[in-house]
Amino acid sequence: MTGVLRRSGPRNLLTDVEGIAVGHAADERLGSGTTVVLCDAPATAAVHVQGGAPGTRETDLLDPDKTVAGVDALVLSGGSAFGLDAASGAQAWLRERGRGFAVGEIRVPIVPAAILFDLGPGESWERYPPYRELGYEAASAARADFELGSVGAGAGATTATFKGGLGSASVVLPNSVTVAALAAANALGSATVGTTRHFWAAPFEVDGEFGGLGMPLPMPNDAGEPRTKLAPSPGANTTIAVVATDARLDKAQAKRLAVAAHDGFARALWPAHTPFDGDLVFALATGRNEAELSPQDWVLMGAAAAAVMARAIARGVHSAAPLPGDRKPAWRTAR
């Protein structure tokens, strides 16, 4: 078959997976924000970390041998460890609506979270950082249609060469299963080849979704040289992401999908998974599609997870908006 990974969903967003909504909130003064992925009903979830510097909340619950069967939401946030507070805001929003598993008369929403480091030298607040309120606002704003670029968890993102951002992409497979990704690209490395504007993810691009430039020809002699933002701070990094499907998966199968999606990091970023990135992928399975999965389907789902992740990362960088005080140029304005 040809073109099996070329058919995007109607929105080309994570929300092409039925049962998912996405919302953003940001603090313009801080240049940082939060993205919440809401599940209409508890969804099977897993996580896989390949970066050396992750920041997480409640990810142990997602191991296949742990009791919790589903999550109510996932949170991606800027703010380094302070950003983990965003999950409390999303949890409060869900609890107000009676969501969560019952413990007597109490409802406990399950909201795992991951953070990236986008703190600037001038960031300050009084007793508590703003991320709890940002998490509540992002949950309140969750919709099927959402913006990309310098929004939510991508508001303060950068890469080695250009601004980073929040990106998303989807694909509908021949068996009708949808696989989609959402990524906040804040990598130590670069999403583009050498000093060019060509994306490493170009072989997976669909319908010119991140500029349609393809790969550079000829390939620059220095294309393989790692470009990083180790200076001035080796810790201001991390790409965090979600891969989702409407297929019926258990937690172990969802974990395999998260593992496969990390291949998309390696296809879209050079270098990736460094000791100074907390590179992490959550996997969600809503189970709305009852298609039986053959061995060939499983192989294709893994390839789809990697492809949509690479596309989501590139779309995040491509969509970033130029703003006053930027630490890196926006791709769309650079020449």
Rank of each mutant, 00 (worst) to 15 (best):
84 L>C: 08
10 P>T: 11
227 R>C: 02
205 E>K: 06
258 A>P: 06
224 G>K: 08
138 A>D: 06
18 E>I: 04
42 P>C: 07
213 L>R: 09
194 G>F: 07
28 E>W: 09
39 C>N: 01
300 L>H: 00
95 R>E: 15
189 G>I: 11
30 L>T: 09
13 L>D: 03
112 P>V: 09
318 H>E: 07
91 Q>S: 15
304 A>S: 07
115 I>N: 05
316 G>L: 09
191 A>M: 02
77 S>I: 01
250 D>I: 12
247 A>R: 10
163 K>Y: 06
172 V>R: 15
305 A>E: 06
146 F>M: 14
99 R>K: 14
176 S>M: 13
108 V>T: 02
154 G>P: 09
311 R>I: 14
69 A>D: 13
232 P>L: 01
59 T>A: 08
115 I>C: 11
127 R>H: 15
214 G>V: 02
295 P>Y: 10
162 F>E: 04
23 G>S: 08
89 G>A: 11
193 V>F: 01
40 D>K: 12
115 I>R: 03
229 K>C: 06
273 H>L: 11
217 L>R: 15
8 S>W: 10
141 A>Y: 09
205 E>P: 03
256 R>S: 07
112 P>S: 13
272 A>I: 00
160 A>W: 03
267 R>N: 13
215 M>P: 04
115 I>S: 10
20 I>Q: 01
199 F>D: 09
225 E>Q: 06
251 K>V: 05
77 S>T: 07
297 D>V: 04
31 G>S: 06
177 V>S: 00
19 G>S: 11
141 A>Q: 05
276 F>T: 10
114 A>Y: 01
175 N>K: 01
93 W>A: 13
154 G>N: 07
268 A>Y: 00
234 P>N: 08
105 E>Q: 12
194 G>R: 05
329 P>G: 01
205 E>D: 06
235 G>M: 12
259 V>M: 14
329 P>Y: 00
11 R>T: 01
24 H>T: 05
249 L>E: 04
153 A>P: 10
143 R>A: 13
242 V>H: 01
182 L>W: 12
236 A>G: 01
172 V>Y: 01
135 G>A: 14
254 A>F: 12
294 S>V: 02
91 Q>W: 14
41 A>S: 14
99 R>C: 08
120 G>V: 05
93 W>I: 04
154 G>H: 11
92 A>N: 07
238 T>S: 14
51 G>N: 01
68 V>G: 11
332 R>M: 14
227 R>M: 10
242 V>N: 03
13 L>M: 04
257 L>I: 11
113 A>P: 09
117 F>E: 00
5 L>P: 07
3 G>M: 03
12 N>C: 13
320 A>I: 08
270 W>K: 09
282 F>I: 04
317 V>E: 12
205 E>V: 08
162 F>G: 01
158 T>F: 13
